[in-house]
């Protein structure tokens, strides 16, 4: 049954994916862009299911459709609520250049994909072998044996990203700098140059 409806399903999902991707680019309101992005991510998860990559499909939904889109919408609310982001914008005048570049990319990539036959050594992880052992088990064995170092490094990368985002957005650095400046100004009201320099170095440390 699933086999029978697979091709029309592919076309349906592909068309929705292309339409929602166009929606990200074309919609004037950034919130609509985020929602189109959500639709696109979910369609890609469906495509991964068709490609027999269940684990990647679930990760796609959990990480992309959940975390990333929520982050986008949250930042949008955070900045839009203050009223400083222009939510509505016009399309820029160098549209033609962008369209030409896009057309070139499409022609080059599309012709390569269409003309060049897929070569290379066939591995042992065929559909039957994967289905027999279980998708997640096979992928987990590969991840935690062959790619163990990369998994550990990915963990370190996520930690660094977390700390970096906190350091970038946190306010205490700036507040302490202002406090140091104020203390310097009150302490030495006449020696302005020296106080300024010391306050600058105080800022940086």
């Amino acid at each position: 049954m699933i086999e029978m409806i697979q091709h029309p399903l592919f076309w349906l999902v592909a068309v929705i994916a292309v339409l929602s991707a166009s929606g990200v680019v074309l919609s004037r309101n950034a919130i609509y862009s985020a929602l189109s992005l959500l639709a696109n991510f979910i369609m890609l998860a469906a495509l991964y299911l068709m490609l027999n990559a269940q684990f990647i499909a679930i990760v796609q939904v959990v990480v992309y459709a959940d975390a990333v889109v929520v982050l986008f919408v949250f930042v949008e609310m955070l900045l839009g609520a203050v009223g400083r982001i222009p939510v509505v914008e016009r399309l820029t005048p160098h549209l033609i250049v962008a369209l030409v570049v896009g057309f070139l990319i499409m022609v080059i990539v599309g012709s390569v994909v269409y003309e060049v036959p897929i070569g290379g050594a066939r591995g042992s992880a065929t559909q039957q072998a994967i289905n027999q052992a279980g998708q997640v088990q096979v992928l987990g064995m590969t991840l935690f044996t062959d790619y163990l170092l990369a998994v550990e490094l990915a963990g370190v990368l996520m930690l660094v990203g977390l700390v970096g985002a906190l350091v970038l957005t946190h306010q205490w650095r700036r507040e302490r700098g202002i406090r140091v400046q104020r203390a310097n100004r009150e302490g030495m009201p006449s020696a302005s140059a020296g106080a300024n320099r010391s306050s600058l170095t105080g800022n940086r440390s």
Partner: peptide, 13 residues
């Protein structure tokens, strides 16, 4: 390829 192109045009536009 189509999705990549749409994304690239979006970054440019």
């Amino acid at each position: 390829a189509i999705l990549f192109t749409i994304g690239a045009v979006g970054v440019l536009v």
